[in-house]
Design a protein around this nucleic acid. Sequence first.
DNA 1: CTGAAAGCGCTTACAG
DNA 2: CTGAAAGCGCTTACAG
Lengths: 315, 315
Amino acid sequence: MTVSTASRALNRPELVRDETRQRVEQAARLLGYVPNKMARAVVTGRSDTIVFVIPDLSLGLFHTVAAAAQQEARRRKLDLLVADSMGNADREAGLVEGARGYAEGIILLWPQADFEPQPGDPPVVSIGRQVRGAHAVLLDQTHVLEQQLVHLRRLGHERILYADGLESYGAARERRRVAERLAADAPFELSEQFEMTFEGGVALADSLDPSITAVIAFIDNQALGIIQRLAERGIRVPDDVSVIGNNDVMWARMANPAITTLHTPYEAMGRAAVSLLLDTEPADRGAQIVETFRSELVVRGSTAPPRRTDPEVTR
Amino acid sequence: MTVSTASRALNRPELVRDETRQRVEQAARLLGYVPNKMARAVVTGRSDTIVFVIPDLSLGLFHTVAAAAQQEARRRKLDLLVADSMGNADREAGLVEGARGYAEGIILLWPQADFEPQPGDPPVVSIGRQVRGAHAVLLDQTHVLEQQLVHLRRLGHERILYADGLESYGAARERRRVAERLAADAPFELSEQFEMTFEGGVALADSLDPSITAVIAFIDNQALGIIQRLAERGIRVPDDVSVIGNNDVMWARMANPAITTLHTPYEAMGRAAVSLLLDTEPADRGAQIVETFRSELVVRGSTAPPRRTDPEVTR
DNA sequence: CTGAAAGCGCTTACAG
DNA sequence: CTGAAAGCGCTTACAG
């Protein structure tokens, strides 16, 4: 009995006699044998592992994408491991660097830094932002803002404020470009920059111009902050001011009022990334593929027609 | 120039001449050399990787623990990769099985199934539930319920309902035992079993006995469901009924009213798990260590003294 | 069906 | 300081 036979008995049992297989299995059990994945990967050249780099697990936002990607990977008999860059570009680069040595594919979620593909890299797919040498799964940001505007205008709003995000975030810069373009057609207000957080919403609400009848929050958490602070100031949502969010986080429907928002197809995007990674030629040899997803409006309780404006009465 | 020298130049540069190092580095750059982590791990016997098995990433609850553990691991120059068992015990077992072959340590978060330690396993630490052959980081569930009760009773509540969770969840069974024990001393109501979700809260609110003045929700999401459904029924929180949550999820403070709850020290627990994994003798040789953490009361807007009860008026 | 041999990509004593 | 050799734990043609 040699290691060759043992290896075969464990991995390709059809190649050995039944009795041999049984002896090997029993011995393995007795000895508590654990196959060394690393060693196997060295010889087979396959680790069957995808590394999914996420910008911030503690945000409670992106884990949905990771969970969906994970399921899809699982369906295809691959492991997907999530690594958190903690919002730090250097750490992100470090994770990619680390994954190079063993991952069979890398998925980058809203990468902070520009990814520089190296020869010999495993295939890379980027979500949310296009980077060189990688297929991309994108979100149609123009469509997001258009939907928000259409919804509010249909309700009759004319004085609409778009909450601008912090310059330092790529997503905020991208959305601002979209906003400026759309505002050229049919004007709406662009706020100063606020944090894309609950606290940012609170700050925005504090400085809200009384003539505004509807606010487009950058994300749902910010919408919640706006609503809460307005309530404290005696301004009611949606009676006095409408607020629309973005992303449709789990707790958007739990709010009071429940948030009207755009549902981001995070699950679909996560699955698409895995599929792009596994089913297509890597982007470094051949064309870059871009798959774009669209968010969907979810009307809930935080938007309503504007209160009939009475110029005599200021809030 | 041999591979030995190249290996040394890359990993232990102090052992080679400066010029040699430079030549190697340049060649590596030109050739796009990526060290094969697997091969290295096979010979060194170290992968510097911790696998963190999480029951459900999409819950938006546990990722905090993972994020904290990740940071702590990072501080110690180890990688921490998160694997999602998707609430499935079989898959959980599969992940542990898979990690055996390469992880240098495994952290199990609220494991679904009983973990059976095998000889040759990497050290394991369990969070939330004690399992054999592993150190444990636990949460003092008795203290949770005691704090909730003390808070409500101090406010003057006498008719308190504890929302029982689904039998199938280990955490729910554990909490019920605690509840039954505490109820023996000073009675309170035990509800029928509800889902520990927003929807579960809605259902509970629908069947709420009018004599109850305060509800202890199983978790914050359930508290939100209770509050929303009560509001729809014209019952106000905290004016008519107080509701206290548990866990202090990110959005508990964003709710309206903001949820009074118990803050679970998830971050501290995540860090403790890493430390237990790395700084102590594995549990299979020697004593099992148990570190227990306590939640802290966070008083916000969803609890208040009971409305003066008037037996004549039923809601 | 099984064994002996070569080899995956690396590291590390051991000589020089 | 560098090279030649052995070896980590595995898999897989190649013979038998």
